[in-house]
């Protein structure tokens, strides 16, 4: 009854560790893919025909509009203490300041920014239309509506 020749079997943990680390990497990366300008809680409508942003778009700017028709600015869009734009005149003035800044930066009279409206599904069209008109008066030509792709809603 000698125990001297018994080989100790050791499980190989390395592939298991590799797999676990890859899973951690996946969850960490997918958890960080939240864009700041779309972080506002807006209940978007669903759409089948919606498409991803054009690859040619150099600059994208989001406007988050709640069901009362107010524009909710995200922290990177704040102007001092102004966190919301309550009426179309305020929206127009805000967009005009941004547009002037862009024109100065690009040294061009044409606005290339794609303006994406994230409008709550319960907003009345008259409110959205006022904001669309404000965008047009400022000179934005590329305006799109944001929607959730059908079938991806929780």
């Amino acid at each position: 009854m000698s125990h001297g020749n018994i080989d100790r079997g050791e499980p190989n943990f390395t592939p298991l560790l590799d797999l676990v680390l890859q899973l951690i990497m996946f969850f960490m990366l997918s958890a960080n893919f939240v864009m700041e300008q779309t972080a506002v809680e807006i209940r978007l409508p669903e759409s089948i025909a919606a498409k991803a942003v054009e690859k040619t778009a150099e600059s994208i700017f989001f406007l988050n509009i709640n069901k009362e028709g107010r524009v909710i600015l995200t922290p990177d869009q704040w102007e001092g203490d102004v966190h919301t734009l309550d009426n179309p005149i305020q929206v127009e003035n805000y967009l005009r300041r941004r547009a002037n800044e862009e024109k100065r930066r690009t040294k061009s009279d044409k606005l290339e920014t794609v303006l994406i409206l994230r409008v709550d599904r319960e907003t009345e069209f008259r409110r959205t239309f006022e904001i669309m008109n404000a965008c047009r008066r400022v000179g934005y030509e590329r305006v799109q509506l944001r929607a959730i792709l059908h079938g991806t809603l929780d």
Binding site: F13, L16, L17, V20, L21, L23, I24, F27, M28, S30, A31, F33, V34, T38, L44, S47, A49, A50, K51, A52, V53, I116, F129, M132, N133, C135, R136, Y140, E141, V143, Q144, L145, R146, A147, I148, L149, T152, L153, D154
Partner: peptide, 30 residues
């Protein structure tokens, strides 16, 4: 290390909430 990795993995699995995919509808302004 494996213990810690499993704890991290459990944390990320529990807090994982896939965000719905968003897209755009092109339109002409009024």
């Amino acid at each position: 290390m494996l213990d810690m990795s499993f704890q991290l993995l459990a944390f990320f699995i529990m807090t994982f909430k896939p965000s719905p995919t968003e897209g755009q509808l092109a339109m002409q302004l009024p």
